[in-house]
Amino acid sequence: MKADPRLKDVGEIRTTHLLDMVVDLHARMPFGGGPFGRRVLFGAAGGTFHGPRLSGDVHPGGGDWALFAPDGAMTLDVRLTLRTHDGALLHMTYGGRWVTPPEIRDALADPEERYRIDPASYYFRTNPVFETGAERYAWLNHTICVASGYLVEGGIAYKVSQIL
């Protein structure tokens, strides 16, 4: 079949490193099974973020209202507040997917082992967006990002890239 003539070459999607972030988590709060799956809140207890253009702390109180499907895949629904090193507040939200192969699910459920598992053995991707009233960070209001997540002792870490 011939390609649609309306299609144009818009170039490849390029990214650049925005920040690395660790979110410390409270103990999980399971809501149980509902009409869409098993809901669990992973509440944010704090954390830090560092990048070439911004750094600071993750404010306690946000979290991930995760939804687990029957096949074990998790859909993320995250809202966090970040405070930059110079006092600006950033509202960060993201969805995403965390898909784990059945053969590593038992190890992921073990609190002593979960953060030792190679992140390349599972698919954990998100799409962060930001909102802020701070003029010096207003460029974030128009920025779309992609991130890879992985488990660390006491929480979750992300490598976040800005889409150019």
Rank of each mutant, 00 (worst) to 15 (best):
Q162G: 02
G95V: 05
D86A: 09
F36N: 10
Y115Q: 08
V10M: 13
E153Q: 15
Y115K: 00
G11R: 11
M74S: 06
M74V: 15
L7K: 12
E131L: 11
F42S: 11
D57R: 08
L82N: 06
N127A: 15
T84A: 05
R28S: 15
R39A: 01
L19M: 15
Y150V: 00
T81E: 02
P5R: 09
F124L: 05
T16S: 11
G61S: 05
T132C: 10
R6G: 12
R114S: 06
W65P: 01
R105H: 04
A107Q: 15
V129M: 10
W98N: 12
G33A: 13
G61E: 04
G149W: 02
V129S: 06
D110H: 10
T93P: 00
R39W: 01
D71W: 08
P111Q: 04
H50T: 13
F42H: 14
G51C: 10
V152E: 01
I117W: 08
T93V: 14
N127W: 13
R14N: 07
T15L: 01
E12L: 12
Y150D: 03
E12V: 04
A45Q: 13
P119I: 12
H17Q: 04
E113H: 10
P102I: 15
D110Y: 08
I13S: 02
V23Y: 04
G62V: 03
L41P: 00
A66L: 07
P102H: 12
G61N: 08
I144K: 03
R14S: 09
F130V: 04
P30K: 03
M21D: 02
T93L: 07
M21R: 07
S55V: 01
P111F: 05
E135V: 11
A3H: 09
P111E: 06
P60L: 14
L82P: 03
R125K: 13
F36D: 09
A157M: 05
A120C: 01
V40S: 08
S55D: 07
H59G: 00
D118Q: 05
E153M: 05
S148I: 08
R6Y: 12
G63L: 07
G56S: 02
L76D: 01
G96R: 12
A147E: 06
M1E: 13
P111G: 03
D57T: 11
C145G: 06
A157F: 04
T75K: 10
A109H: 13
R114P: 00
K8M: 12
Y123E: 04
D24L: 15
L82S: 10
H91I: 10
T81S: 14
T132Y: 08
V58R: 06
I156E: 04
Y150T: 02
P119M: 13
R105V: 14
T75E: 09
E113N: 06
G87K: 13
V78H: 02
L151D: 03
A147Y: 05
M21Q: 14
R14G: 04
G32V: 12
G43A: 15
L89E: 10
G33I: 03
G72N: 08
K159N: 11
D4S: 13
T126W: 03
E103H: 15
G47E: 06
L80C: 00
W98Q: 13
